[in-house]
């Protein structure tokens, strides 16, 4: 029942995710260096935030093409949960595991701030502990988080209930004013059509303990743990 946390050169939220999974959730987790290309035996994967390969070329582009990502794809194909946070989300779109692309924020600067998210879908291994429509507070920290997809792709995301989080106000209203990066339709997180791969720009590991000001992110890791241990 071990979760792999993939470390690329430039990942920097790996230790935070490890701390939350091991010390807060109580799930076995191990850091896995990207050169280890075998993930057999792991029950889930987290691709943490950071700046893999210095964001050279495009954020996540080079990490997405490393051999370990082939193992992540195999694990995803087996239906095991794969969570990509921030740079991890960028890696997942670049690898083709998730739809769309993450482009430069509409106001092109690095934004690090708390955001409110409306939970759009609870039918995923990551959101089973939420209520649909619930508003949660989880911070963002990125410059390339502007979600873009073609109209066809957006329609597919909508049709199959694949949008998991949208930027909203504290009442749950989805408006342009609270969209921190220009993402289409305020999209902050999506899942794959198989629903077991989630990418999200906000950092749930930074909202998983009271001392951090919000514990809302913890439910994502707890939902994942429920799924892995079969208790949900």
């Amino acid at each position: 029942m071990t979760v792999a946390i993939i470390q690329f050169g430039g990942s920097n939220c790996d230790q935070d995710v490890l701390h939350v999974l091991q010390d807060v959730v109580g799930l076995d987790a191990r850091l896995v260096w990207y050169k280890e290309d075998n993930l057999s035996g792991f029950e889930g994967v987290v691709i943490p935030g950071g700046f893999s390969y210095g964001d050279y070329l495009r954020a996540g582009a080079i990490a997405a093409r490393t051999p370990i990502m082939e193992s992540v794809k195999e694990l995803a194909a087996e239906g095991k949960p794969v969570l990509g946070i921030c740079n991890g989300f960028q890696v997942l779109t670049e690898s083709g595991l998730l739809a769309g692309a993450l482009t430069t924020n509409m106001y092109p600067k690095f934004r690090c701030q708390p955001t409110c998210l409306r939970v759009e879908s609870t039918g995923t291994p990551f959101t089973s502990r939420f209520k649909k429509g619930e508003v949660v507070r989880i911070p963002i920290a990125h410059k390339e988080g502007n979600f873009y997809a073609t109209e066809d792709t957006l329609a597919q995301l909508e049709h199959h209930d694949l949008v998991v989080f949208r930027y909203a106000d504290s009442e749950g209203h989805v408006t342009d004013e609270v969209n921190p990066n220009g993402s289409q339709e305020n999209i902050a997180g999506i899942v794959s059509t198989s629903r077991n791969v989630l990418g999200m720009m906000p950092h749930p590991e930074r909202a998983s303990e009271d001392i951090l000001g919000s514990k809302d992110g913890l439910k994502i890791f707890e939902s994942m743990a429920d799924h892995i241990t079969g208790s949900a």
Binding site: L57, R58, A61, E94, G100, A101, Y148, A149, T150
Partner: peptide, 8 residues
């Protein structure tokens, strides 16, 4: 395969 992202 790498240099461009065909979506954008």
């Amino acid at each position: 395969k790498l240099i461009a992202n065909p979506i954008i």
